[in-house]
């Protein structure tokens, strides 16, 4: 302690204190590492490799389940399909649904596309549509034999009599290739 360092007279030297009291214990490399990390903190980079991995797995999964036929099949609301193990892949055909005591079918007209009729074997609109469709099919391929294939879907709890009524109508109109739409249970 020197005598000239009187409080308030001598200019005060403000210096950054060292890292350690004893410089021989200064961890230079550790300090450098900490400084480097601190400087890199602002350069945030997203590691995209896991993202690409995830996309690859997703693409492979979707490609394996891809249906190239392009057919979209719809099940009517409030309808549980019966399960079956011996079904074959469904093909795109005209579709009739039996829900309760009603028969529902799709016809493209100017006003609407979906029609409902009471399933009483008269079903004039359904019969007219079946005849029209049959004529159209015959006109499209006059040399080929008309197979009369049609898909029929119904709820699992529908009485069989309702199904048989529709079957009789279809048979009368020459549609004998009836396919029952089923839910494939695990084989």
């Amino acid at each position: 302690m020197s005598s000239d360092k009187v409080k308030g007279l001598a200019p005060r030297l403000i210096s950054v204190p060292g890292y350690h009291i004893h410089p021989e214990y200064d961890l230079v490399h550790l300090r450098h590492l900490i400084e480097t990390r601190r400087s890199h903190k602002n350069k945030f980079t997203l590691n995209l490799a896991p993202m690409v991995d995830m996309f690859s797995v997703l693409v492979i999964f979707l490609l394996m389940n891809f249906s190239s036929s392009g057919d979209a099949f719809f099940v009517s609301q409030n309808l549980t399909l019966p399960k079956a193990t011996q079904g074959k892949p469904m093909v795109s055909l005209p579709l009739i649904a039996v829900v309760g005591n009603k028969v529902i079918f799709n016809v493209e007209t100017e006003e609407k596309t979906k029609f409902e009729e009471i399933n009483d074997e008269k079903v004039p609109r359904l019969r007219a549509w079946l005849q029209k469709y049959k004529t159209f099919k015959k006109q499209m391929s006059p040399d080929a034999k008309f197979e009369g294939k049609i898909n029929l879907q119904a709820d699992v709890n529908t009485p069989v009599e309702e199904i048989k009524k529709v079957m009789r109508v279809l048979m009368n109109e020459g549609w004998t290739g009836i396919n029952f739409v089923v839910d494939p249970s695990k084989k």
Binding site: V59, G70, K88, M90, F180, V182, D183, P184
Partner: peptide, 16 residues
């Protein structure tokens, strides 16, 4: 593309 074209509903048919 694959999500939009995926066939989520797998149906089968029994020809009688």
């Amino acid at each position: 593309f694959l999500l939009m074209t995926a066939a989520w509903l797998q149906l089968e048919a029994l020809q009688i």
